[in-house]
Structures are given as structure tokens and as C-alpha cells.
Write a protein that binds this DNA or RNA. Structure first.
Lengths: 164, 164
DNA sequence: TTGGAAAGTCAACAAGGCTGACGTAAATTC
DNA sequence: GAATTTACGTCAGCCTTGTTGACTTTCCAA
């Protein structure tokens, strides 16, 4: 049995173990998005709207270009989503005071309500999973996910962590 | 500080911790799909083709309806993907011998080659993440993901685990 | 004052989901 | 043996969400 200098088994690095991890990601991500998707269906919104709402809530006053780099989509794609959210009165866009080219984004009260509904549902599932797995498993979960990110994504993720 | 009867801290269940987990899932999933996406762009294929190829490789001879229940899409959607894979000679479809209504799916040699290329890339990232996080973190990672799945998805996941 | 960055818009397109309707062959049930 | 159900395929049309390309407006900063 393969052992590292430190003595840990390397069996967790077999192709079979890696494949299980890949499939776990696939199935778990479905669960991860299932509840918000269910809430949004019927409204005119989808997962893209959820993501925008989440990160605007997370960083109130964020600019469009900051949101673009977090979401990793084109401005045309994001703009379509933002426009409907602004028209429907969920998001408020205001010109920057120091730099008037920028648009600072905030959730309205109505936007806050939808955000709350969506994140309550998503957190409920996450909470149940965390509770079932326990604190040590959760720490490992986060470690592996962080290691799986592209460096640029990890930078974004950590910037959010600190900021909050 | 909140403590369970067992004595573990419950701080890992705060909304803040849950939010970090949610964002970690979002950013990590991007990394998870990035390498195969890069390989497939330029070919006429996308993520949907990758998923079909993965699970046909995983369960050679599987039927269309079995694949449907694993992927959770409509037959029209899956059919569009399968048709191109069959036309391009990556997948072979053959009538069932015991039940001739069924179509059993296999990867051709050409299909195996693409599968290998895709899964090598995806496993490389997963392996790096596993190695960086260590075996105990990996165990926790899998525990949390399993707990996050819908029961039906968990059933599918476990059926695959055993079968492999 | 002018170059370039930030933001927005229009048009066109593609992938990949979806529903509904219909057809065919084979298995199952009555 | 007839009727029904199951497995699969296909056509048509729609939606969301991503893409590129071209263009305009605004406005900061060198």
C-alpha cells in the first residue's frame, strides 16, 4: 500500500476515488441549485437572476464591472438580466458620485425580499448537509472546494470572504 | 458559545459559514467544468455531450431511459446529444437482445479516446485538489456533497458507486 | 482637448434546456 | 388475439442564458 513520507495512505488519489468525487460534484450541484430554481420557475427569472441578486446582496453598491468579473459572463449577458431586475424594481442602479461612469447596484426592499426567500431555501439545504456531516467534514469540504478553484476565482472568493 | 450535547461547536452552522459554503460551491463548480469545457470548445460538442459520454463510459451497455434518469433531462434533449455522438461515431447504439425495445449504448474506440482526454483533464484538477487538501479533507468533502443531494440523486449516485 | 475606459444597446446566433404531438416496434396484459 | 403500455425516436416551437461584433454615450485623466 502506497504511503507518503508522512505515512498517509495515497489510496484516496486513485482514479476510482477521483471519479467518485467527480460524480459527487455533479449530483450535489443539482441539489445545490434545485431549491432556488424551484422558487424562480414561474417567475420570469432563472439562475442567472439568482446569481446577480446574490452578489449584489453580498456586496451592496458593487459596480457592474465588478459583478462582471465575479460572474464571469459578458456584459451583454449580464445587462439583459440586470435590466429586467431594474425594470421590475428589484435592483436600483445609481451613478457613481466619485466616478460617474460607474453604476452602483443595490437591492430594493422588494429585491431584499426575493433574496431572502432564495437564500433561505439554499441555506436550509446547506445547513442540513452541514449538520449531517459534522464540523470536521465541513472543514474538509471547504478545503477541497477552494483547492479546486482557478486561481482567479479563488482570488474573487477570498476577496468576498474578507469583505463580509 | 453554542455547544451540542456531544460538545462540538455549532459555529459552523452560522449563516455566515453557510454563505461561504454556497459561494465555494459556485466558484469551485466553475473550476470543475473549466478543463473539459476548454477541450470541447472548438469541437461541435458541449457540456451535455461530456455528461453523456461520462455516464456511458461509466456504465457500458446502459439504456437510453437509464441515462435519462441519471442526467435528469428530457428524452428530446438527450436525443439531440446522442444523435450527434452516434452520427460522429463516438457512441454505438444496439437493440437489446432480451428486450428489443431498449437501446444499449457503448462508446466506440473513438469515443473512448475523447472520454479519456476529458476525464484525464478533469481528474488532474481533482487530483491536485485532493492532494492539496489531504485524505481527511477529502472524506469530509464527499460526506457533505452526499448530504447535499436530493434523495433520488443520492440513490443514483450510490447505484453507480456500487456498480463500479 | 483628446484618448480611452466604463457602461449601455442593438442584432444575430448557438447550446441546451423545455413542452406537445405523433409514430413505431415490442412487450405485456386482458 | 386484441388492446394497452413501454421504450425510443422525431418534428416543431419555445425559453434562458451564454456568445461575438459593432456602435454610442458619458466622462475621467493625461
Amino acid at each position: 500500500m502506497a504511503e507518503t513520507p508522512g505515512g498517509e495512505s495515497l489510496l484516496f488519489l486513485t482514479d476510482e476515488q477521483l471519479r467518485k468525487g467527480i460524480e459527487a460534484m455533479f449530483f450535489a450541484y443539482r441539489g445545490f441549485t434545485a431549491d432556488p430554481d424551484r422558487i424562480l420557475e414561474g417567475m420570469d427569472y432563472g439562475r442567472a437572476h439568482h446569481r446577480a441578486i446574490h452578489f449584489i446582496h453580498r456586496s451592496p453598491g458593487t459596480t457592474v464591472s465588478n459583478l462582471l468579473s465575479i460572474l464571469g459572463v459578458t456584459k451583454q449577458s449580464l445587462n439583459r438580466v440586470l435590466r429586467t431586475l431594474i425594470e421590475d424594481g428589484l435592483v436600483r442602479s445609481e451613478k457613481g458620485k466619485v466616478d460617474a461612469r460607474e453604476r452602483h447596484l443595490h437591492l430594493t426592499d422588494k429585491g431584499q425580499m426575493l433574496e431572502r426567500e432564495l437564500s433561505d431555501a439554499q441555506r436550509a439545504r446547506m445547513r442540513a448537509a452541514y449538520r449531517a456531516a459534522g464540523p470536521q467534514a465541513v472543514a474538509g469540504f471547504r478545503q477541497v472546494l477552494e483547492a479546486m478553484m482557478d486561481p482567479e476565482m479563488r482570488r474573487q472568493y477570498n476577496r468576498l470572504k474578507e469583505g463580509g
